[in-house]
């Protein structure tokens, strides 16, 4: 067991005028996850600490937060990899309104997600079977199927911090997943949404999103491919 000093940014809009740092000492294993250390605080030190988490295994994407200044999933990062001089600093995601402590209002994020029509668009009759696809066609958009909508990418993006109207990397990744799906027919509509002034053109290729993605998706590359599709009118 090692001792870890957790510095957690706290804010309760019903009580606090501005955010403050809560400091807690916990004992955990180096191989425990950051989420375990936060649980230690929540369950044994201060029950008022608010956070989101569900599966706790890097699948549901609900515990994305800023850990030592970088967007990470708390259930995905081990104490030994994050501890710096005995301390770990934890903050809520940037760019979204804080509801309480580590919980942010995800609605603007999901509104952008809905705007790109994140579902298969195809009105043709598939016949008696499912719509088939070759392994090569499936591989074309494989990377962007991995997105778990944790918002780590979108809330690491300086363009999104500056302007919440920007559709954001996650919505573009989700659009990419359908635009490059050979079974889908809604690419033109999606590319129109993403070609708007608050669409893909707001991306400055900073690569924060790629660095932040806990699933290792090449987010900036996907955004680049969508830009190229809009610029050329062709989905390759």
């Amino acid at each position: 067991m090692i001792k870890v000093h957790l510095k957690i940014k706290r804010f309760n809009p019903e009580k606090d005028k501005k955010p403050w740092w809560g400091e807690y000492d916990v004992e955990v294993e180096p191989t425990d996850r950051v989420l375990d250390a936060i649980h230690e605080v929540k369950w044994n030190i201060d029950g008022t600490l608010a956070l989101r988490r569900s599966c706790a295994h890097g699948v549901c994407g609900s515990d994305a937060m800023r850990i030592n200044g970088r967007n990470r999933l708390a259930c995905h990062r081990l104490i030994r990899d994050e501890i710096q001089n005995g301390q770990i600093t934890i903050e809520p995601l940037l760019g979204l309104r804080v509801i309480k402590d580590l919980i942010v209002d995800m609605e603007p994020f999901f509104a952008h997600y809905r705007s790109i029509m994140p579902y298969l668009v195809n009105d043709t009759d598939p016949g008696p079977r499912e719509r088939l696809q070759s392994p090569e066609d499936r591989a074309r958009f494989d990377d962007t199927t991995k997105c778990i909508l944790c918002a780590a990418c979108t809330t690491s993006c300086p363009s999104f911090w500056a302007r919440g109207e920007y559709v954001g990397p996650a919505a573009i990744v989700q659009a990419h997943r359908f635009i490059f799906d050979s079974r889908d027919q809604g690419a033109a509509e999606r590319l129109e949404v993403l070609g708007d002034s608050n669409g893909v053109w707001r991306c400055r290729t900073v690569f924060n999103c790629t660095e932040a993605c806990p699933r290792g998706i090449e987010v900036t590359k996907a955004i680049g491919e969508v830009k190229q599709a809009i610029a050329t009118g062709k989905v390759r």
């Binding site: 708007d196 053109w201 599709a229």
Partner: peptide, 28 residues
């Protein structure tokens, strides 16, 4: 697997409605 769907590599998107996005695309 007998995929008859045309490969993604050959797909051409229906023309993207031009209008408000034309300027940003041109600037990019």
């Amino acid at each position: 697997l007998n995929a008859s769907a045309s490969p993604a590599a050959r797909r051409t998107v229906r023309p993207i409605p031009q209008g408000r996005n034309r300027f940003e695309r041109a600037m990019w």
